[in-house]
């Protein structure tokens, strides 16, 4: 029996009749190199790792370095969820800075005229007008922050919003 490519293909696919199978195996028994070749082809089928190649040991580390290099962007700095980046860690951070600036600024500017009277710095007199200013400034800042939040969501997180 001549072992043509067609017969070999059907043999490897297990599509031969038992009689044909026996004939092929008999033929393989007479041809050691072909028998080894067929065995190895089938061995790979039984043992997927036989054909598997291993990358260098630091492969995953190098991938993660590349990933982190790509990740270091504004998009990643302002961690967000569907509510907006102000509701996340970045919002807390921004809020803390904002509070520091307002409180710190108030203390510094409020205290300066009494520390340095020679400079004749203007002092704020508490009246109806100046009482309302911090409230207006606070509301305006909140509006700005809200608009910034919406802009960040739209610009960088369009899929989330």
């Amino acid at each position: 029996m001549k072992l043509t490519d067609d017969i070999l293909e059907r043999y490897l696919a297990g599509e031969l009749s038992p009689q044909e199978m026996e004939q092929v195996e008999q033929r393989l028994g007479e041809d050691a190199p072909l028998q080894s070749a067929v065995r190895l082809t089938k061995a790979w089928e039984d043992d997927a790792e036989l054909g598997l190649k291993m990358p260098s040991p630091d492969f995953a580390t190098r991938v993660m370095i590349k990933v982190l290099q790509k990740r270091f962007s504004f998009r990643e700095l302002v961690q967000t969820n569907t509510l907006g980046f102000l509701s996340g860690k970045s919002g807390m951070f921004l809020g803390a800075i904002f509070t520091l600036l307002v409180v710190g600024g108030g203390i510094v500017f409020g205290a300066l005229p009494s520390y340095y009277p020679d400079l004749n710095l203007p002092t704020f007199q508490a009246d109806r007008m100046t009482n309302g200013l911090p409230v207006i400034a606070g509301l305006f800042s909140l509006l700005l922050l809200f608009l910034l939040d919406r802009w960040v969501l739209k610009r960088y997180f369009a899929k989330d919003s």
Binding site: L8, L12, A32, P33, V38, T41
Partner: peptide, 20 residues
């Protein structure tokens, strides 16, 4: 897949023969 597997077996046969 079937044809590639057959060609692989033939290629292996050649390398085996070379080794012999």
């Amino acid at each position: 897949v079937h044809r590639a597997r057959t060609r692989l077996a033939r290629a292996l046969e050649t390398t085996m023969k070379e080794e012999v």
